Deep mutational scan, measured.
Amino acid sequence: SADYSSLTVVQLKDLLTKRNLSVGGLKNELVQRLIKDDEESKGE
């Protein structure tokens, strides 16, 4: 998976916004949300 932890919070929020995901929470939560979304989209 992508190394989201190396991105800035601003970059993470931009990715979340593009996916229509919540941008609330700490950086670690944003990273986990993106990883979870990646895993769910692979399952389709």
Rank of each mutant, 00 (worst) to 15 (best):
V23K: 07
L26I: 08
R19E: 01
E29Y: 03
L21N: 01
K36E: 10
L15K: 04
V10T: 14
E39D: 07
S1T: 13
S6A: 10
L7S: 02
N28R: 09
V23I: 12
R19L: 03
D38S: 04
Y4T: 00
N28V: 09
I35G: 03
E39S: 08
N28G: 10
E44A: 13
T8S: 11
I35D: 03
Y4H: 02
R33E: 02
E39N: 10
V10C: 15
I35T: 07
G24K: 15
K13Q: 11
D38A: 04
R19I: 02
G25T: 03
V9Q: 05
A2R: 14
S5Q: 11
S6K: 14
G24Y: 14
S22T: 07
K36A: 11
N20L: 07
D3L: 12
K27M: 06
D3V: 10
L26Y: 08
D14N: 12
L15R: 04
V23E: 05
D14K: 14
E29W: 04
T8Q: 04
L26N: 15
G43T: 12
N28C: 11
Q32H: 08
V10K: 15
L21H: 03
K36N: 10
E29D: 12
E44G: 13
E39H: 10
Q11S: 05
D37M: 05
G24F: 13
K27P: 06
D37P: 02
L21R: 03
D37L: 05
V9K: 06
S1K: 13
Q11G: 04
R33V: 03
D37N: 12
K42H: 11
L15Y: 05
T8E: 05
K42T: 09
Y4L: 03
S41L: 10
E39G: 07
S1P: 13
S5G: 10
D38L: 05
R19H: 02
S1I: 13
T8I: 02
K27T: 05
R19N: 01
S1C: 13
I35A: 06
R19G: 01
K42A: 11
E39L: 14
L21C: 05
K42G: 10
D3G: 09
L15M: 08
E44N: 13
A2D: 09
Q11E: 11
G24R: 15
K13A: 06
E44K: 14
L34I: 04
D14G: 08
R19Q: 01
N20M: 07
Y4E: 00
L21G: 01
D37H: 12
D3M: 12
E39C: 09
D38M: 05
V9H: 06
T17D: 06
Q32R: 09
I35Y: 07
K18T: 07
